[in-house]
Design a protein around this nucleic acid. Structure first.
Lengths: 226, 226
DNA sequence: GTAATGTAGATTGTCAACAATCTACGATCA
DNA sequence: TGATCGTAGATTGTTGACAATCTACATTAC
């Protein structure tokens, strides 16, 4: 059943086009693993699911292909992309550079209110005892950071890379097999930001990304080598 | 006339899908300025031009929208994107970070043969007296650098950003009004790379991008403030 | 038993037509 | 004169149908 969640759907359909709505919907399907990595995506199936014809579906899939979330083989259709360790490494190379940039910029330009918001999230993580909650807060923390960097295009690029990485994690392994992400690193980053030490904040955030990469490698080593 | 340039077109049509071919074709139209920034893109017009129906055209346009080369307004169609100075600045923020990464990586991993190729291009630029030739060599120089960084995803991201910038330049102004790009900077970069000094190569390449940004600002200041 | 061949069903690629919406321009009225 | 309304043409949004291609399975030949 094509569940319609929001109450004011009409407003969305007025401003956003149908293909773009379908695009985010399929993206959610992929990111939640309902469409597994490597799986073939059936156009007609999606069409009946969303109650449209195949046209808008195909347009959405083209956009997702450009976003590198799916790949397309002529006359065979589109497949959910699966990311190898090497490709994840490539993404991490870029992400580390962007994280450094983010740290610098946030330290330089975050408003006092934004600083408080960052501190609050880190405190909440400290108090969190549940894995899901902790994970959500962690995502939120990094989301806030990019936003506070005050560069829309940077946000866009960063989110795109992150989605690619998520695609890898959904391949089965979960962040180093546990929730090893220590909150002490987050605290150090926030401290540097509050101190307006851009260089240090950038350095710490880059290292944070590097640690995440290391956890990925550790998890991949325990796994069937694809 | 839909000019068919290559002799082995059939091979291309066998492997690549029609929409993806149309996508690069439209992209060329935009990047060459035949479709001017801000201009409305007519689907039917392109359809007859490429000898297809509107379906594949629309798919290609969706991909170009995701690549941020066009924007789309519901029921009004798609328009070639126009980049403001602020947006170009955002892109330059990212590009500087990536250029530093590129410099580092190339210094660390370029093969002797690749080093020679870089040196050759810089020499050719020295000998060049024509603006077009110099410009083409300059583009080639930076293209080689990303390639030699040995990270496909980085290449992809970098090229995407560069296209966005090109979109800005085509708004009328040409690279600081002249060809101010001094070759001495290129030589310094290559020297650092040959010396395998990654840190310095990265720093120099970042500075090179920053200079390019400065030229853009200079040109924008002479222009009607959009 | 295995490999090659052939066929049926399913899926993608493309198209042409129709409905919905927008835009430009002229008519009408105060 | 100026503003409002309404209509005609053009353009986009979406659909259903058809052709081309692929995939899986059964049949045949060796």
């Amino acid at each position: 059943m094509a569940s319609v969640s929001s109450p004011s759907v009409l407003l969305l359909v007025r401003s956003n086009s149908l293909p773009s709505l379908i695009q985010v919907e399929i993206e959610q399907l992929i990111l939640r693993g309902e469409l597994a990595a490597g799986q073939h995506v059936n156009e007609s199936e999606l069409a009946v699911r969303f109650g449209t014809s195949r046209g808008p579906i195909r347009e959405a899939l083209r956009a997702l292909e450009e976003a590198r979330l799916v790949r397309s083989e002529k006359n065979r259709g589109v497949f959910v992309r699966e990311i190898s360790v090497d490709e994840a490494d490539e993404i991490y190379d870029i992400r580390e550079a962007l994280d450094e940039l983010i740290g610098q910029r946030v330290a330089e330009r975050a408003t006092p209110e934004e600083l408080r918001e960052l501190e609050r999230v880190v405190e909440d993580m400290d108090g969190s005892r549940e894995l899901n909650e902790y994970h959500a807060l962690n995502l939120k923390f990094h989301d806030l950071l990019v936003d506070f960097a005050g560069n829309a295009r940077l946000t866009e690029s960063y989110r795109l890379l992150t989605k690619g990485l998520l695609l890898f994690r959904l391949r089965g392994l979960q962040d180093g097999g546990g929730f090893a992400v220590s909150n002490t690193e987050h605290k150090a980053v926030v401290a540097a930001i509050v101190a307006r030490d851009g260089a240090r904040a950038g350095q710490l955030l880059r290292q944070h990304a590097a640690d995440s990469r290391a956890r990925m490698h550790k998890a991949a080593a325990l796994d069937p080598p694809t």
